[in-house]
Design a protein around this nucleic acid. Sequence first.
DNA 1: CGAGCTCTTGACACCAATCAATCCGGGTGG
DNA 2: CCACCCGGATTGATTGGTGTCAAGAGCTCG
Lengths: 252, 252
Amino acid sequence: MPRKIPLIIDPRRDPMVDDGDRVRFCSTCAFSGVCIEAGYDKSALAELHVLVEHVGPFRAGEHVFRAHDPFKAIYAVRAGMVKTVSVDPDGKEQVLGFYVPGEVIGLSGIYPEHYPCNAVALETSHFCRFSFPAISSLATRMPGLQQQLFRLLSKELGMTAMLAGDNTAEARMAAFLVDLSERFAQRGFSGTLLRMSMSRIDIGNYLRLAAETVSRLLTRMRDQGLIRIEGRQLEIIDSDGLRKLARNAIDR
Amino acid sequence: MPRKIPLIIDPRRDPMVDDGDRVRFCSTCAFSGVCIEAGYDKSALAELHVLVEHVGPFRAGEHVFRAHDPFKAIYAVRAGMVKTVSVDPDGKEQVLGFYVPGEVIGLSGIYPEHYPCNAVALETSHFCRFSFPAISSLATRMPGLQQQLFRLLSKELGMTAMLAGDNTAEARMAAFLVDLSERFAQRGFSGTLLRMSMSRIDIGNYLRLAAETVSRLLTRMRDQGLIRIEGRQLEIIDSDGLRKLARNAIDR
DNA sequence: CGAGCTCTTGACACCAATCAATCCGGGTGG
DNA sequence: CCACCCGGATTGATTGGTGTCAAGAGCTCG
C-alpha cells in the first residue's frame, strides 16, 4: 500500500487527492495527468509511486535542468513558476515558455536525448520529478499512461501556436495575459489576480518585444481600464476587453 | 509473410527498403521511423502492415485533413510537399510548417482529438496513412514503436524553435532556406537544388513577413551571390554565407 | 487570347527598437 | 538609521526596418 507523500507546500493550494483508497498522488501529479490513470490499478500505482520524486525548493534564478544535460526525467511544477530558455551558440537567449503549477516541462528533450533548453525557477519552486526511462517502460504496460504522455506532448505542440502568429505588439501582449490567466484558473488559482514572477525583459523576450515596449503596453492597458498593475502583481479587470485586443490582429 | 506494397512513385527516389527479409516497408514508412522498429519482429511487422495505407495522389491545393476533423490518423509524406495551416475564428490563416517526404504530420491532433489545422498539398503528393488508435495500441506491445512515436512528437516540438526567435527578416529567411535544405538532404534529395513548391505568400505567412519582403530578400540574396532563383526553383550557392546570415540575429 | 493569379519593384508611412534619462525598490554597508 | 548602489521599470525622443499601397511584368489555365 503506497504511503502518503508528505506535503512540502501550502495544503490549501495543493491538497492531496485522496479518493477513497484509489488515487494517492499529490494534486500536482494528478493534475499533470501523469498519474491519474494509475489510480485504478493498485500494482501500477505502486510502481508509479516509486518513480515519482518530489524535488525542491529551487530559489529564483536556480536551474532545474540545463541545456545539453542528458535527458533523464520530466518535471511537473508543484508550486512556483519556471521559464524555459534556449541559448544559441552566440549566447543569445530565447524564452520559450512560462510554466505554472500542474504543467510539465522537459518533454522536448525526448528526441535529442538531451534537454534543448534551460529551465530556470522564477520564484521559489517545487517539482515532481518523473524518471523518463521508468515512466516510458511503465507506459508500455499501461495504455492509459501512454495515452496521457502522448496527450501531454501533443498539448505542448499546440501551445506554441499563440507565439507563432504575426500580430501587433498589443495583440500579442493581450493574448499572453489571457493565456496566463486561463492557465492559472485551470489549476485552481485566481484567474483575475496573477503574480507575474517573470521580469519585463523575460516577457519581452518571450513575445519578441523590447522590455520598454512591454512596459508601455502595460501602462496603456492600465490607462484604458483593462488591468490594474503594481510591479509584478497584475489584476485583470476587463477580461473581455483583453480578449478583444488579442483578436485585433493583422488580417492576412 | 508480408507482401511487397506496390510503389506508386518513382522508385529511384523512393525505393523499397528490403534488407534480406526483415524490413519490407516503403522507404517513407521506414524513414519516418514509424515502421523501422518492426523489421525485427515478423508478427509485429504483419500487424503494422495492416494499419499502413498508401493514399494519394492529392493535387496542389487539396486537403489531406481539415481543422476540426476528428483525429484518426497520422500521415507520413511519401512524395510531394504539404503545408499545415491554422485558421482562427476571424478567418486569419497562419502557416505552421512545410513538410517534405519522410516527415510526419497530424501529431498535434492527439490531445484535442481533432486536427488543430488544415493540411494542404502544395504539389501532387502521396502519403502513408497510419491509423492512430491501431498504431498506439500496437505501441503498448512494442516498446521500440512507442519510443519512436515519442521521438516524433518531441522532434516536432523542437522544430518550432526556429520560428520563435526574434530575428531580422533576413536572418529568418536565411534560417528557413538552410533548414529546408538540410531536411531535403536528410531525406536523400539534393540539398542545394530545391523546388520550393509554396508561394511567396505562404513563405511570408510562415516567417511573419509580407510577401513583398520575401521577394525583396530573395533578390537581395541572389544579388549577393548566395542563391540562384528562378520562380520556385532555388539553388543554394553559398551555404556557409546563408548560415552566417541566419546567425546575424538581434543580440539580447 | 484574355482572366486571374503570383511575383517583382518602387514610394511612403508607421510601428516598435534603440538610445537616453529618470525613477523606484531592495539590498548592503557604514 | 540612513546613504548608497544597483538592477529593474518607466517614460520620452529619435531612427530604422517592414508593412502597406500601387503599378507593372510574368505565368498558368481555361
